[in-house]
Every structure is written in C-alpha cells, then in structure tokens.
Write a protein that binds this DNA or RNA. Structure first.
Lengths: 233, 233
DNA sequence: TCCTTGGCTCTTGTATACAAGAATATTGAC
DNA sequence: GTCAATATTCTTGTATACAAGAGCCAAGGA
C-alpha cells in the first residue's frame, strides 16, 4: 500500500506559498497584479487565514508587496533592480567560489568535474533546457563546496528568485557556449585552490555586463510587453 | 496639538514583529526558548492571529524556527553558523565597497570622510557606545554609496541580525582602535576609486579571522553562559 | 524497575464572524 | 458638463470558534 507522503495538513501551509510563488515567478500572476485574498481562498478551496499567511511569507521573500489595508500586489521589478540583484548574486557566487577553492574535498572536486562534463554533453546535444538544468547543478555544487551553510542558503534563495531572468539570458545567441567556456575557468581555479581567481571568474560569469547588459535589457523589454498584455484588456 | 503618528492599526502588525525581534536580538527571549502563541497574545493584549503573523515573519527572517504543529522556538545559532554569517557579511560589504569606489559622488565622499572623523572623535572620547554608533553609520554610508538598493537592503538586514555579535567583538581589547585604522584603508581606497582594494580592505575588516576568531569564540562562550542562566532556574 | 500502550490535555492550524478603513459610485451643486 | 461630497460597498485586519495532531501522564505488563 502506498503511504501518503505528508499528513496532508503539512502540505497546506507551504503548498499555498509554493503554488503562489511559482505562479509569480512564471508570470502566471503578472507584476503589478492585485492578489485578492477571497479570490485566492476560493481558488485554493481554503479560508482566508492560510492565504494571508502565504502572502506574508511571499512579502518577506520580496516577491510581493503588502500595503496596510490596501492589499497585496506582485512586485514589479524594473530593469535596474534586476541588474542590481544580479550584481549581488555575482558577489555571493564569487564568494562561494573563493571558499570552495579553499575548502573543497576530493569528492566535491570529482562532482564538479563530472557536472562540468555533463554541461558539455548538454551543450553538444543542443538542448537548451538540458543545459539550463546542468548549469543550475554546476552552480549549486559550488554553493555547497563553500562549506558555508548560510551562504549556500542565500545563494539558493536569490538564485531561485532570479531564475526566470537567468532563463531569459540563456536564450540569447551563443550564450550557452560562452557560459560553458567561463565554467571551465571557474573549475580550473577551484581545483587549483586559487580562491582569488575562482572569485573573479565566477563573479564575471554571473554579472550582467557589457554586451550581455544590452542584450538583457532588450530581452526584458520583450518580456514585459507580453506580461502587460493581460492587464491591457 | 500633537498628531498621532500612525492610525494605530498600522502599528499593530509591525509593532508585534519589532517587539519580538528586539526581544530575540537582545536575548530577552533566549535561544531555544519556546514561543507560545497564547502567552504572547496575552502579553501583547491581542488575539493569536496577529501573533501568528508576526511569528511567520520572524521565521522568514531566520530568527525563529517554526515546526509544523510543534510551535516556534528561537533559533540557536552555533558559533560556526555565526562565523558563516559574518563571512557572508564580509562578502557583501566588500562588494558594496567595490561598487562605492566606482560610483560614489562627491557628496558621498564628503559624508564618508566626515563620518570617519566622527569615528576618530568617538574613539578619542573612549566611549565604546559612541564608537559603536559612529561605526554603524560608517558602514551604512558605504552601503548607500554602492548605488545598489538591493545590496543596501541585504546589508542592512544581515547587519541588523548580526548586531549583538558585532557589539560583542567591539568589547574585546583594543578592537576599536584596530577597527578605526582599518576604516582608514577603506576610505582611502574608495576615495581613490580603487574598487579592488576597497573590496579587499572592507572584507578583511568585517571577517572574523586569526586572533579575532579566537577572541570571538571565547566571548561567545561567556554570552551563552549568561543566556542560559534564566532557563537553568 | 523499565518499557509500552492508552487516554487526556494542550497547542496549533483553519474556518468563520465582525469591525473599520478604502475604494467606488451616485447625487447634487456650480 | 465637471467637480466635489457623501453614501454604499468591498476588502482587509483582528477576534473567536472549532478540529485535529503532539506531547504527557498514568497504568499495566514484562
């Protein structure tokens, strides 16, 4: 007999938050859109209470904004805010790489190399999605190899928040190929134990600079056009 | 006639959170201690609903831990977790300094210099509290001068969370004097526009390394002894 | 004496009820 | 016809009620 994974009650709390978070990150609920408590309660077949708790958590995560007695709206991040967040992401990942270079064990080195080869395979297959996921694993291995749990958590959280935009970047031209080459430099530095160089390499890999900046802003423009459509009805 | 600052209702929501946060950060509610909803509701003369919302926010901020159907407890950070958080703080502040070096305007330069002199005055007076506050301002000026709002917010949030431990460090021996000297190097690098050096200087200023690490662990031991006293009655 | 099992209590999670502030629509005056 | 003021409705914030899981205590057996 198959056991039910959770007491079902446990699901409720985080279920709502995860569902809403997903809807926001994927754009199902567009930036600027109002989050009405009763509608959501109706939609998820629960009362307003757990909905409110979910909204509060999303607000803490910075995904939505709750104004007193005025309800919640999905935060609309302007281009410069997104770039600012990538700047921080670059800093955090650089730090992770630096620490990973200093602290990684042999099994982590092997894992990193294996994942790097996996990236190569995905790149060769031409499957953008496959590369996306391999890329994600690559970065997460470095977070863990930093042996700093707090940093690991921070990186994961911010990375998740930036996920839609990372996806956007990967579409642009030969970004995947460039990305892989940059990964190579990161791997080299980490395995050599060169923290300074690892920091530098990963930071520049993540940062949105130069031509990538221009491309990114352009891609963002296309995204927001699509996004605003439903609101323009 | 003096106007009441808020419609009083607005206060309720954040009032509870701030009060609880303060109690936790100052140790009034000790790490590991249980946060009973009904007791808190009684204490603050409100119902459980707003208490729960406050607890949820504190959990999002990482100050407490809520386990499903098992209530909330104040998170007990072990020494290595605290050190890990300082490591991240150092990384973020280093990034802020790097960006500040590249982006600061003339009025920010002036502000930084003025604050640095204020630190000197506080140091001369021998008033540890005065130096503590001047020091805090100094760092916050750099956050702002990074011209990265997200980074600024992240720095402020983490800084607040680490406040009690920063205070602890400042007590140790001639830390204030060393601190001020390190500030000098940071100011120089930022004003010169040397991002690399500014990053390096501020990162090492914030990080807990070498002798400071030993001192810090020792100080932490004393703190937890005091903290656990009430629970040991 | 220690472990296990049963029931009891206590606390949390969710639903509902109610009050008060915001938004909106309507009506009146200019 | 437009603007303003007021009334109505709608939504949020808080309190309370109820259900169910978790922990605790006691009693019985090994």
């Amino acid at each position: 007999m198959v056991e039910i994974s959770e007491p079902l009650a446990l699901a409720t709390g985080s279920r709502l938050r995860d569902a809403l978070e997903s809807d926001i990150l994927t754009g199902v609920i567009a930036p600027g859109e109002r989050l009405d408590e009763v509608s959501l309660a109706h939609r998820f077949q629960v009362s307003r209470t757990p909905i409110r708790e979910a909204l509060l958590q999303l607000a803490s995560a910075g995904l939505i904004e709750i104004r007193h007695r005025r309800g919640a709206v999905v935060r609309d991040l302007g281009p410069q805010q997104i770039v600012a967040m990538f700047e921080v992401m670059a800093g955090l990942e650089g730090l992770a790489a630096r620490l990973a270079a200093q602290r990684h064990g042999p099994e982590e080195a092997a894992e990193l190399l294996a994942c790097h080869e996996g990236c190569l395979a995905a790149l060769g297959s031409g499957d953008t999605d496959a590369y996306y996921y391999a890329n994600e694993r690559f970065h997460q291995i470095i977070y863990r190899a930093s042996h700093n749990l707090f940093l690991n958590e921070q990186c994961l959280a911010l990375s998740r928040r930036l996920r839609p935009y990372r996806r956007l970047q990967l579409r642009a031209g030969d970004r995947a190929k460039t990305s892989f080459a940059e990964h190579g430099a990161v791997v080299d530095a980490i395995l050599r134990g060169d923290g300074e160089q690892a920091d530098h390499a990963l930071r520049n890999h993540v940062a949105i600079q130069g031509q990538r900046f221009t491309d990114f802003i352009k891609a963002l423009g296309g995204l927001s056009e699509r996004r605003y459509q439903p609101a323009a009805e």
